[in-house]
């Protein structure tokens, strides 16, 4: 449960996204999970063929299914995923030509939306668009749609795979895993403290917003300047409160020997089971395989959709 008896405001439950299930995937060592990200992300970055990317994405979804994540948990990530995919697609459709097209590579134009010559007829916007698109204009083309799809897929793979690690691993375990993989303790400690205070700060944000509303502030009626001022006011309140907190926290930590010269030991231990070890080796092999794949099919062809 994550409710605040003191504040009686049940708004930030499950903030850590961690879904407690007993799947075998949940029980994997966090280092193995983080390791799993490597080949997935490598392929996502290097591959440009929509088919390859679709295969990788399906693999990620299969991992989700095996983790028995309940359907209602997908809502947030589906929304983000859908919105960003549509954005990438639209952007690619119209602006690929202006931003990314490399002269000499194939270009199948379906329709001209904004020719460079039209720039003069459109008062202010015209020259701006021209400048942004490197003087080429806006064009609806096949390669643009392809680029949009490919980029959307890459983003989705990164989003879903990263989100899976967070959904199936307790925050402390992720940090421990990172520690063992070489991230310095002070850094992970900072991350853990930040995580711990996120619900508090979010709640403060909500309360401060409401406090402003309760004093007559209507955010929708504001012009940009006033809105900016209001947001800055809220932010400065949050920052002031956070600084105040940090002072007390620092003192409290001193009284618990933080920063003493002794070597800091971790209470919880990460132990790799046999399954973990086998998986780790498999993944390492997969990484090598992926690198070879990339070097053979993608690297020599800087553009194109060979992988």
């Amino acid at each position: 449960m994550g409710f605040y008896p003191n504040q009686e405001m049940n708004m930030f439950r499950g903030l850590f996204h961690y879904v407690d299930r007993k799947s075998s995937l949940h029980r994997l060592d966090p280092r193995v999970k983080l390791l799993m990200l490597i080949p997935i992300l490598l392929l996502a970055i290097a591959a440009n063929n929509p088919l390859t990317l679709l295969v990788v994405f399906s693999l990620v979804i299969i991992i989700y299914v095996f983790s028995r994540i309940p359907l209602y948990r997908y809502k947030a990530i589906f929304t983000v995923g859908l919105l960003s995919s549509i954005s990438f697609l639209l952007f690619g459709m119209f602006f690929y030509f202006g931003f990314y097209h490399y002269p000499g590579t194939p270009l199948t134009i379906w329709a001209w939306i904004f020719r460079p010559e039209d720039a003069q007829s459109l008062p202010i916007i015209g020259p701006i668009i021209l400048a942004l698109t490197q003087g080429r204009g806006i064009v609806l083309c096949y390669e643009g749609v392809l680029w949009g799809t490919v980029t959307a897929l890459k983003f989705l793979i990164a989003l879903f795979s990263g989100n899976w690690v967070v959904m199936t691993t307790k925050p402390k375990e992720i940090l421990l895993g990172l520690n063992k993989l070489g991230v310095p303790i002070k850094l992970t400690f900072v991350a853990m403290t930040a995580l711990r205070f996120i619900p508090i700060v979010m709640e403060e944000w909500y309360v401060t917003l409401n406090a402003q509303r309760a004093r007559g502030m209507k955010f929708r009626r504001l012009n940009i300047k006033a809105l900016l001022n209001a947001v800055i006011a809220i932010l400065s309140t949050l920052i002031a409160n956070s600084i105040r907190r940090a002072r007390i926290l620092a003192l409290a930590m001193e009284t618990r020997a933080f920063g003493s010269d002794q070597k800091k030991v971790s209470f919880k231990e990460l132990k790799m089971t046999r399954v973990d070890k086998i998986l780790a080796v498999t993944i390492l092999v997969m990484i090598v395989f992926t690198v070879i794949l990339i070097l053979t099919y993608a690297y020599p062809y800087s553009t194109g959709y060979t992988l």
Binding site: K172, M192, T193, R196, R245, I248, L249, A252
Partner: peptide
């Protein structure tokens, strides 16, 4: 609230 820096009671 301001003296707790870990995520769980145990930690």
């Amino acid at each position: 609230e301001n003296q707790l820096c870990s995520l769980t009671v145990e930690d």
